[in-house]
Nucleic acid binder design. Sequence first.
DNA 1: GTCCATTCTTGAACATGTTCAAAAAGAGTG
DNA 2: CACTCTTTTTGAACATGTTCAAGAATGGAC
Lengths: 216, 216
Amino acid sequence: MDGKSAQTKALVLDTALGMFRTKGFAKTTMRAIAAQAGVSLGSAYYYFASKDELVLELYRESVAEQRAAAAVAMDGVNGLADRLKAALHAGVDALTPYHDFGGAFISSALPPRSALSPFGEASREARENAVGLFDDVIDGTKVPHFLRPQLPELLWLAYMGVVLFWVYDTSANQRRTRTLIDGAAPLVAKLVSFSRLPVVKPLVEEALALKAKVQL
Amino acid sequence: MDGKSAQTKALVLDTALGMFRTKGFAKTTMRAIAAQAGVSLGSAYYYFASKDELVLELYRESVAEQRAAAAVAMDGVNGLADRLKAALHAGVDALTPYHDFGGAFISSALPPRSALSPFGEASREARENAVGLFDDVIDGTKVPHFLRPQLPELLWLAYMGVVLFWVYDTSANQRRTRTLIDGAAPLVAKLVSFSRLPVVKPLVEEALALKAKVQL
DNA sequence: GTCCATTCTTGAACATGTTCAAAAAGAGTG
DNA sequence: CACTCTTTTTGAACATGTTCAAGAATGGAC
């Protein structure tokens, strides 16, 4: 963990991320990463146990980028619908460079055993960061208090769905995803606001109870 | 496509599926499949272009099993909640042998480019079968007619979510998934029935419109 | 039966993620 | 410096999915 080794690790990581961005995930070979970084294949594996671990770093970086971009985009914006819209668009914007290898990412990320799994231990920090993004979204909006504690996580889950949709979205500039965001954000906001109504509230409470009961 | 070749193909497939079930997906090698089936590696690849294609067959088979099992389980059961519950439990039951390599399956299945993608062309037949399952579920229950055409596909989407949850569910016998089904089925039924109410209906209609607008 | 085209079979070769034992470099101790 | 222990580096070796060119088997046309 000394100066020298930390430098090498960072060098390998930067090289890898750069190559992922330009060549895509599958086409970027561990050998090529090592060569370009000027270290041996074995050295690359000394610092990163697997190619997936490299992607995990990318994931962390991307989550941080998304949160930062979302914070900027929401600045001065009021109301849940608009804040949500701004945050999601900013998030997707930040993801854009990775669209081409989104499939590969999902393939590595979703399997439960994977270190990358958004639900797993290794990515807890990143996940908390991502859920925190939706804390930021809610911040300063009116949310029924019985919903408040669970809402960020629910929104994060929904966002995972949006990201999944985005991965599949081959329309130019992912326009369909934009349409989805523009349509879904006001819907979610209405749903949240309607959750106060006597007809709806029990339903929502039942759903929340189920979520708690079923939670990992 | 003659007698002989069809036989060889079926032999390879059966061998593969059997080995997937007993050894798991990752541990089952193309070489081992070929050897056990008594053909050369190249021959196996003559019939199946990739290991994934083998999994696609497994998927097709499994969907058919799920639908059949669900039909039996729903026999004589009335009401959306109960029919849904029965169908989902039967579906998950049919999936049980595959739980161990669910992760591998997802990893192969979800990437958009994959022949296996549940949303892709190659699996259209299986998907239609799966959506048809939820046609069976609705059959004979009271559903608001403005919802009726879209409901099977929506339920299928939700079911995809349940399956994803199931893949991650490491509790004994996937008990958490069972809990989820038992809780979610009545919720969905209530939601469907409430969708008639004047407060809720516009929301649902907006959601349906968005779905149509965004659809692939 | 002979010939040709198609279908099927084969195993070697390839690419790439990963492992590992050995060696080199570094750091601390006397 | 000499010795030892740890950290780092290395490239060969391995496993496995996949490709491919060459050959064998098959089936029809004449």
